[in-house]
C-alpha cells in the first residue's frame, strides 16, 4: 500500500491570530499549563504590509533532525511521514529542541530539582507507540484522531481555514489555487516548507 505524505500548511494571508488552533490543541489533548504544542506567532507587528501571523508546531519534517540527534533513539517516523516519539524511552535531554528548526519540542518540569521531564510535541493527532486509543496512549500523547479517520483538531477548528493538514498533494493543490486566486502573488512555496520538507 502506498502511503500519502502528511503535511501541515498555514496560510499567513488567512491567519487572523485567533489562537483557536492552540486552544483547541491544548483542550483536546488535555495539555498541562506551560506546554504549547502549537503556537500562533505574529511577526513585524505594526508594520503595514509586513505584519503576518502564522501557526507553528512540529512540521513532521522529512529526514527529521530530532530523530537524527536523539541519544536514546526514541523517535520513529510513520510511513505517512508523521514523526512520533516514545515518551517512556525519552530522557528529556533537550537535544531534539536544539536540532528542531521550528522550536517544537516542549519540556515539562517535574521532580523536586525541576529536571526536564519527557519531551512533548505535536503528534499530528496520531498518538504514540502504545496501543491505539488505549487509556495510556491518551494520557501520554493525547487523542489519536488519525486512527479514527478524523482531521487533526487544530486544522479542523481553524475558522478561516488558514491551517491545513493532509496528504502533500491535496495541500499543494489548495495552496496553488489560493496563490492563483490572489493573482499569483506571494512566495512560491509555503513558509517553512523548504526547511521541513526540502521542497519535495
Amino acid at each position: 500500500m502506498d502511503y500519502a505524505r502528511m503535511k501541515f500548511y498555514c496560510d499567513e494571508s488567512r491567519c487572523i491570530e485567533c489562537d483557536g488552533c492552540s486552544v483547541a490543541c491544548a483542550e483536546a489533548h488535555e495539555l498541562p499549563v506551560g506546554i504549547s504544542r502549537r503556537k500562533v506567532v505574529t511577526i513585524n507587528e505594526g508594520i503595514p504590509g509586513k505584519e503576518m501571523s502564522t501557526s507553528i508546531a512540529c512540521m513532521h519534517c522529512t529526514d527529521a533532525p530530532c530523530e537524527q540527534v536523539c541519544p536514546v533513539d526514541c523517535f520513529y517516523i510513520r510511513e505517512d511521514g508523521i514523526v512520533l516519539h516514545d515518551k517512556e524511552k525519552c530522557i528529556g535531554c533537550g537535544y531534539c529542541l536544539y536540532a528542531c528548526p521550528f522550536g517544537a519540542p516542549q519540556f515539562p518540569r517535574d521532580g523536586a530539582f525541576g529536571a526536564k521531564g519527557a519531551m512533548d510535541k505535536c503528534t499530528m493527532c496520531a498518538g504514540g507507540p502504545l496501543e491505539t486509543n488505549s487509556e495510556k496512549e491518551r494520557h501520554l500523547y493525547g487523542q489519536n484522531r488519525i486512527a479514527e479517520g478524523k482531521v487533526p483538531v487544530c486544522a479542523a477548528m481553524c475558522s478561516t481555514k488558514a491551517l491545513l493538514v493532509g496528504d502533500a498533494e491535496s495541500v499543494s493543490n489548495v495552496y496553488r489555487a489560493r496563490v492563483m486566486a490572489r493573482g499569483g502573488k506571494g512566495s512560491n512555496s509555503p513558509y517553512g516548507w523548504d526547511k521541513a520538507y526540502k521542497n519535495q
Binding site: C70, P71, V72, D73, C74, D86, E88, K89, C90, I91, G92, C93, F113, A115
Partner: peptide, 15 residues
C-alpha cells in the same frame, strides 16, 4: 543511551 535502551535507567544516569 540507545544502546542502553533509554527509559528509566538512562534518565537516572542523566539526573
Amino acid at each position: 543511551g540507545d544502546f542502553f535502551g533509554g527509559g528509566t535507567f538512562v534518565r537516572m544516569a542523566k539526573n
